[in-house]
Computed example of a mutant assay.
Amino acid sequence: MKPLLILVSLLVLLAGVVSLWTLGSRGPDAMPGPSVDALLDFDFGAEGFTEVVADRPVRFPADHGAHPDYRGELWNLFGQLNDTQGGRYDFQFSLTRVALAANPPVRASEWAANAIYRGRLTLTRAGEPGVRSAERLTRAALGLAGAGSQPISVWIEDWSLSHPDGQPELPRMRLVADGEGPALTLDLIAGKPPIPFADLGLLGGDVGGLGLQAYLLPRMAATGTVTLDGEPRSVEGQVWLDHAWGTLPSGGGQVGLNRFAIQLDRDRELVCVQLRREDGTGTRIPACALILADGQVQSFRRREIRLEPFERWLSPGTGARYPVAWRLSIPILDLELELVPLTRDQEADDAVRIWSGAVQAVGRLGGDTIAGHGRIETTAEAVAPSGT
């Protein structure tokens, strides 16, 4: 079983880690590009790093910040924003940290570093094809990237995520992704307390057994500015945050994992995972959790859920095939949803191929119409099902 897909970004980052590590005393002008071949020959074991303990409680506000004693870490935010002129934007913003050694050698170079940070921003505007993106990748040296505790913050160059007020239960955060290309600045206020992933009851709740610890803030009110083509627009909307840390996931294995995170009407959120064999055979195994308006969680397992794709998309660039539109039913809730992508071409352009896309949700709950929006992340199907 692979660890959660929210840590797939850690694998993606690794493609460039070895090249940066081997720079030694050389300056930034000598920095080579990412190398997947180098990654394959590098040992990213967890020896010497702190191991995730299954019964360790999540602690706030400290756990909003970095966990440098662990091998890897990911802050992942996504959501839907609306401007004052009726425009709609869906975004994903991630900051990833990978430590290189538990006991690094002492090196005199001021460019020497024991961690690599990667940032990525993707932005989709409704009614326009394709996805805009920007990226940062650098070492934690000379203040180019790092994390702080007063206030709690993590940054990479001119991108940052900070937690200035220190509130543990309903935190305020500030996201800044400046620079050329798409840009984003948001002030965030949590509408619900953090929810440890183990409390969702997914994958048996054995998150510690997967080598990671995680929590989510499934609904944060957002206000700020989106900039596309040099034109800033005031926006507001709703944002979801995942934060995970622990052991780096393996890139191999026979099991794929699809993940669904949907913000629904009435301040409810739905998160689902679905295990499947990479070769497309066998039975898919789903699990879902519904987060109620008061933060309480209702969990549902395999026999209580129907979750099946009804549309697939073939990437013209890689030839990979992904399930991108889904029907979800939980009869005990009288819940039926269709999840449809805003645009089909939302394949992540990375060494690890996944489809990470914004979706709209429409359906009914208890006889009433319900709608929402969110994100699906799915690995490619190695064998395309017949008739699609």
Score class of each variant (00 low, 15 high):
283 T>I: 02
87 G>Y: 06
288 C>V: 03
152 I>N: 00
264 L>W: 00
325 A>P: 14
8 V>S: 12
193 P>Q: 04
146 G>Q: 07
79 G>P: 07
31 M>D: 08
189 I>K: 10
306 R>H: 11
362 V>K: 06
29 D>H: 07
387 G>R: 12
212 L>M: 10
147 A>M: 01
214 A>T: 00
128 E>R: 08
372 G>M: 05
287 A>S: 14
104 P>S: 02
113 A>S: 14
55 D>L: 03
210 L>V: 00
282 G>H: 06
347 E>I: 07
130 G>S: 11
227 T>K: 10
294 D>W: 11
37 D>W: 15
294 D>Q: 03
4 L>W: 09
133 S>A: 10
357 G>T: 03
176 V>R: 14
334 D>H: 11
122 T>N: 14
260 F>Q: 02
108 A>I: 05
346 Q>N: 11
206 D>N: 10
153 S>P: 06
202 L>R: 06
277 R>E: 12
216 L>P: 01
102 A>M: 08
27 G>S: 14
300 F>E: 04
328 L>G: 08
224 G>N: 10
260 F>R: 01
133 S>G: 13
222 A>P: 04
267 D>H: 14
122 T>E: 11
220 M>V: 01
259 R>P: 01
230 G>M: 09
312 R>C: 03
291 I>F: 07
384 A>N: 06
325 A>N: 10
94 S>K: 03
142 L>N: 13
46 A>C: 09
132 R>K: 04
62 A>W: 09
184 L>K: 14
337 L>D: 08
221 A>D: 15
32 P>R: 02
75 W>L: 06
28 P>T: 07
239 V>R: 00
23 L>F: 07
239 V>K: 00
